[in-house]
Simulated assay, not measured.
Amino acid sequence: MTSDQSTAAGVPESEIAPRVRAVYGPEDLSSVPAFAGGFINFGYWEGVPLDRPLTDEDRVRSERGLYRRVLRTLPGRGSAVEVGCGLGLGSALALEEFGFGSVTGVDIHPEQLERARRANRSLLERSPERLRFVPGAASRLPFPDGEFDALFSVEAAQHFPDLAAFARESARVLRPGGRLAVTSFFLPEGGEGRAEALAERLESFADGLDVAHPLGTLVSALAEAGLAEVSAESIGAQVWPGYDHFLAGAGLPVAWPRNFLGAYRDGLLDYYVVTARRPALC
């Protein structure tokens, strides 16, 4: 396949940032010790004791907890779509624990979709009509208008190059009355000029894996796309200290991920849950 051929839903491979393509493709981020055996997210550590060394079981519990924190904001019925589903473990959790009739996981990376199908083979075999994984980009979702009652995205928006396009597509594929929930890390209000400082501290921002999106960019984009009740809640206090405490005992081969906590404490970035609703028809 050449760099100009499509990898997902008409999106040329050349439109995927090289570092994003590598990390979620041949490098397989899910295989590194900080994520192996669980989800690929920084975790929501509320309820996990931080006064002792943390285990891999604690990490997976926190990663699952982040999904639960997001999914509790959604209706828990009808159909749902996860944008940037990765290994698909969160899509499966949404299906099994939150009462959705069906869940569709979307990811732009073919390798991730194959991993998702392998990781969830048993559930796919038992409920093929209720769980599926399909290729697609956040800016070009491969669904008709009004397809879903809920849309969620967990720690993927920091990779989306165009939040306005993601917001428009989210609004388009939601049914009237449908709800959206997005969680990821963003520059806080007033931090719009701090991308360079983040890149100096955190390799993922320097090499193009993560994009320094201001929170206001997503909030404004969702409102401009026609969604209502757009709100953002900081959950950084439940993410960064626990994540850093886990990393302290993880034996990382590199030191820079420990800088996330300092960047949060210095006001360079924070972690948020952003929710919105597509207005019901009159």
Rank of each mutant, 00 (worst) to 15 (best):
Y243L: 14
E229N: 06
D244S: 14
W240Y: 15
G242D: 12
A225S: 14
A228T: 10
A223V: 00
Y243N: 13
E224N: 12
G226F: 01
V219W: 09
L215D: 08
A223T: 14
S231L: 03
V219E: 13
W240S: 01
P214H: 09
P214D: 11
D207Q: 10
G236E: 05
P214C: 06
S234G: 02
S231V: 12
L218R: 02
V219D: 12
G216H: 04
D244H: 14
G236T: 02
A223Y: 00
L227W: 04
A232G: 08
A212M: 07
L222R: 06
V239S: 06
E233T: 15
V211S: 11
Y243R: 10
D210A: 15
E229H: 05
S220R: 14
G242Q: 11
E229A: 04
A212G: 14
G242F: 11
A228V: 08
G208K: 11
A221K: 11
T217H: 13
S231E: 14
E233H: 10
L215I: 00
W240I: 00
D210C: 15
A221I: 04
I235T: 01
V211T: 14
D210Q: 14
E229V: 01
E229F: 00
A212L: 10
A221Y: 09
P241L: 03
V219I: 12
V239M: 05
G216M: 04
W240R: 00
G236P: 08
V239L: 12
G242A: 11
I235Q: 04
S231M: 05
S231A: 15
L222G: 13
G226L: 05
H213G: 08
Y243S: 13
V219K: 07
D244N: 14
V211P: 01
A228C: 10
A232K: 10
E224A: 14
S231W: 06
L222Y: 03
D244K: 12
I235P: 01
G216K: 05
D244A: 15
E229R: 02
P214I: 04
T217L: 14
A237R: 13
S220G: 15
V239R: 03
Q238F: 07
G242V: 06
A221Q: 03
P241N: 03
E233K: 10
A232I: 07
G208E: 05
W240P: 01
G236N: 05
H213D: 08
A237W: 02
W240M: 06
G226N: 07
L227R: 07
H245Y: 05
H213Q: 11
S220W: 04
S234V: 00
T217Y: 05
S220K: 11
A221F: 06
A223P: 00
E233L: 12
A212H: 04
T217V: 15
V239T: 11
T217G: 11
A228P: 00
V211E: 09
